[in-house]
Write a protein that binds this DNA or RNA. Structure first.
Lengths: 353, 353
DNA sequence: TTATTTGATTGAAACGTTTCATTTGTTATA
DNA sequence: TATAACAAATGAAACGTTTCAATCAAATAA
């Protein structure tokens, strides 16, 4: 078929220049806003370009000029409301700064991470943003060890030299969430954690901070931590039911639950209700992330709000200043979070108070 | 600072070839899987490449070979659970087919649409996928009139020559949703529509189909359509409250509502409850899309489920066959939808039955 | 007038690949 | 033995830009 084989653009600078009666260099200068082209020639070039419906070939330009105005974004799960919100900000901010985006959703698959990063590099992206990528540090090192690009990780902190990261304060979040429950007098308080790192047998990055915050809050109130009251989740929706099923085997039942993200919290709430218990009268629950659904389920979920928009904005800001060669010290920023009190924790003020 | 100025890769084919003692052409052949290279040379080349940590330069390759294995995806709103789900599928399927993705979120901004499409074209993408793009047809024509690329539109049907589209059956969806309400005996039945097209003063594409389905269902049951019982929404969350506020001025009140998407439906449900009314006892409600939240709010939302995964899969399938030059007839596919009965319409069997 | 500076424009090299006509070497055929 | 056929490898052109040293023309200074 004839339809799609004429991919090569109909016209190029050479033709445009010829039509306008100028040299290729001059034509190029026009499109690059060089100020030394006379108005006469400039207009002739633009006219010829319009006539030929000329479209600059970025491939050729990139090859010669050794910069692509392109960055690669690797995201852990675009279907998460938390990340898709940030992605939207990234797209918009990059657009404002004249950057185009390569995109890949890893779905937590190591092979996709590897392939996508290599693709980004082969495409000579000017920078890379990792969004929520939580993987083995060594894997990233293996790929990135010799690349000299700005790399910004959002919500995923690695101690890789030259890599910036920004993240919400998971520890503080875990702390205030748990403190909120403690101050309302709830006891015992369970936790649904994030996933374990398969290798190191410890909680993975973000889950880890949330868990530590939980522990510290307990400690500060003089409550001893009972590992039986923690359930390992995977940040996935149906970890909520699973956790509840486990918690219901405990005696005494947990009086409140801190879920390490909203999806699990919401699912847990459902499960609690299905078991004939009430939220918060029988079991209070606090989440983490403040996804949109948190506000419109019933009871509305009390949760920890992360500064999503700020994370996105800051990532691009940092990236831009890296690209402009400002500042050499890798930036590690931890942004404060806040608790959003809604209905799911009620106002119970029990004996512990 | 020194950190980021050595973007150009350390090694290139020429160096690798030299190290391996072969010609550049041979080295190139090795990386392109040409079968005529002797095993001896192949190994030498690979060894040299590894030694230099060689990474092919796709820019150069693309320029010469006139194909980029890259496609552009333009999405209306990545933060919508409906589109982000499809986006995830697109990313995965493209990865499987060796395609890289350029990404841009338009946020319904015409300027971003224009800029992004032009960027895609300047980057010489091999194809374009429009995801939920609902804009003036002329705008697309102006940009795409001379490009000969496969372009697939998901959930946004244009009668542009050579453009494929696939979409869920909006008409059928509106029809079965309304029919469901009618069969349960509800009357009168309100509708919250999608947005109007500012120019043509008619409903925009998808909203239009849903509305037509609603009308047809009424007609088939012999119910006369009363325009007072329709409210123009914008597919946005808080159109729900606004609609309810309007509907509550009506007499009699609507006994059921068909909301043209789940976001508005969920928001409307909230508003109904806040007004002290019950769902479905006082007002029943049916949504459209089946976003995740539909299943976990209370009462769970009865809604029309669209085949998201299929839409994504099919889009890439079509794209791939276009790229391989199969079939010249533009494909216009409309996929069936199904109703998911949950709680929000109850089992009322009123007089109308 | 001549030399110098300035500003506008040119032309060709370069970017790192792929492609393809050509060359070289080997094996089969007559 | 000479020739044809085949396989393996080469080398240079080409892709469409940007870049930059060189050129040319005009304006200014001496």
């Amino acid at each position: 078929m004839k339809r799609f084989n004429q991919i090569r653009s109909m016209s190029n600078l050479k033709e445009v220049a010829k039509k306008a009666g100028v040299s290729v260099g001059t034509a190029s200068a026009v499109f690059n806003g060089k100020n030394w082209v006379s108005n006469d020639l400039r207009l002739r070039v633009l006219k010829a370009a319009k006539e030929f419906n000329y479209r600059p070939n970025r491939i050729a330009r990139n090859l010669r000029s050794n910069t692509t105005n392109t960055i690669g974004v690797l995201v852990t799960n675009i279907n998460s409301p938390f990340f898709s919100q940030i992605m939207k900000v990234l797209s918009y901010e990059c657009h404002k700064n004249g950057l185009n985006l390569f995109f890949s959703d890893t779905n937590c698959d190591e092979n996709i991470i590897i392939k996508s990063l290599n693709d980004f590099l082969e495409h000579k992206v000017d920078g890379i943003i990792l969004l929520g990528i939580d993987t083995r540090e060594q894997l990233l090192r293996d790929i990135l060890f010799d690349v000299e690009l700005p790399i910004i990780s959002i919500e995923g902190n690695y101690s890789i030299e030259n890599m910036d990261y920004i993240q919400a304060d998971a520890f503080q979040g875990g702390y205030i969430a748990t403190k909120h429950l403690l101050e309302l007098g709830y006891y015992p308080i369970s936790i649904i954690t994030g996933p374990l790192n398969p290798e190191e047998k410890i909680l993975r990055k973000n889950g880890w901070g949330r868990f530590k915050g939980y522990l510290k809050a307990l400690e500060d109130k003089g409550v001893v931590y009972n590992p039986e009251y923690s359930y390992k989740g995977n940040f996935l929706f149906d970890d909520g039911v699973k956790a509840i099923e486990y918690f219901l085997t405990l005696n005494p039942l947990p009086r409140a639950i801190f879920a390490s993200n909203d999806m699990m919290a919401i699912n847990a709430m459902q499960a609690i209700k299905e078991k004939g218990l009430r939220v918060p009268e029988d079991i209070a629950i606090v989440g983490f992330d403040d996804i949109p659904a948190a506000s419109f389920i019933s009871p509305a979920l009390t949760t920890v709000r992360l500064p999503q928009k700020l994370l996105g904005n800051l990532a691009v800001d940092i990236l831009m200043s890296r690209l402009q060669g400002k500042s050499a010290i890798p930036l590690r920023k931890v942004l404060p979070v806040e608790i959003v009190v809604r209905e799911s924790c009620g106002l119970y003020l029990g004996e512990k108070r």
